[in-house]
Amino acid sequence: MADPAFSRAGPGRRLRPELFVGQADASPQAAADWSRRRILLTDLRAVRGRAYPRITGLFREKSWLFFEILLPFLTTSAFVFVYRALQAPPEYIGFVVLGGAMTAFWLNVVWMMAAQLYWEKDQGNLELYFAAPMNLMSVLLGMALGGMVMSSTRAVAVLVVASLLYGVSFEVDQWLLLLAVFGLTLAALYGLGMILASLFLMWGREAWHTTQLMVEPVYFVSGLNFPVARLGFIGALAVATIPLAVGLDAMRQLAFAGSQVSLLPPLAEAGILVAMTVLFTLAARWSLRTLERRARIEGRLTMRWQ
C-alpha cells in the first residue's frame, strides 16, 4: 500500500517563488554567463565571507588572547634574555623583538593558510568550496585576512610591550619605505602561503607534517633572532627565496637606522619583495588551478585521511 507520507500531492510547506532571484535569467545559459564585474565582485565577497568565521571565532572563544598573545611574548622574551646573558649590544634586543613580531605573520601563513585546505577537506568543506563559483584564491585570502586580525594583535603586543619592557629604541628615517616593506612582506608571505596550500592539498597527510618543517628551520634560515647576513651563503639564499628573511632584514635596517651587517640595502630588498609578490601570486594562481585539475583526476578533493 502506498505510504501517504510519500505523496506528491500537497507538500507541507509552500515556498514563495519571489524568494529566488535569478528568475530574471531566462535560461541556465544566461544564468551561467557572468560579466567580469560580477566575477570580481563574487571573488571579493567570497573573501569577506571566508574571513567572517575566522574573525567571529576570535570573539566567541577568547583563549587565543592567552595562547596567541601572552605566551608568544614570553617566547620572544626568552630570546631577549639569551642576548642579555651574552651581554649583547642593545640593538640585538631590538632584532629579537622585531623578529618575534613577524613570527606571528609567518605562523598565520603556515597554520592558517598552508595547511588549511587540507583541514577543510577533512571537515568536508572543500567539496563545497570547489562546487561554488568563486575563485579558491578568494577563500585563501579570506582565511589569511581573517587570521591577520589575530596575527596583527600579536605582533603589536610583542612589539609594544617588549620594546617598553626591554628598552628597545627604534630609529626610523624612512617611515614610508618601512611601511611599504612591511606591506610587501605580508603580500609575498601570503602569496607563498597560497602556493603551499595548493601543494598541501595534493600531499595529503604529509602536509600536516610539512607545516612543522616551516617553523624552526625557517626561523633559522630567515635570521629571526640575528642578522641573516651572518649565515653567509645560506643567508643569501634565504633572502632570495623566503619573504620572511628578506622582509625582516629590510625592516631591521629601516627600524634601526645605521645598524648592522646586511646583505643588500633596503630598497633592493623591497624590489625583491615586489618580485616575490608578483611571482608567488602568479605561481599560486597556476598551482591552484593545476593542482585542482590533478586533484579532480586523482579524486583527492573528496577522499579524506590520505
Partner: peptide
C-alpha cells in the same frame, strides 16, 4: 621525510638558531 622533519630538522634548527646567536655576539662568554 617525516623522520627528517621531526627528529632532525626541527631540533637541529632550534639548536643552530642559538648557536648562531652566540656566534653573532662572539667572545669568551659566548
Amino acid at each position: 621525510l617525516l623522520f627528517f622533519i621531526y627528529s632532525v630538522a626541527k631540533p637541529v634548527s632550534a639548536a643552530l638558531i642559538l648557536v648562531v646567536m652566540l656566534e653573532v655576539i662572539g667572545g669568551a662568554t659566548s
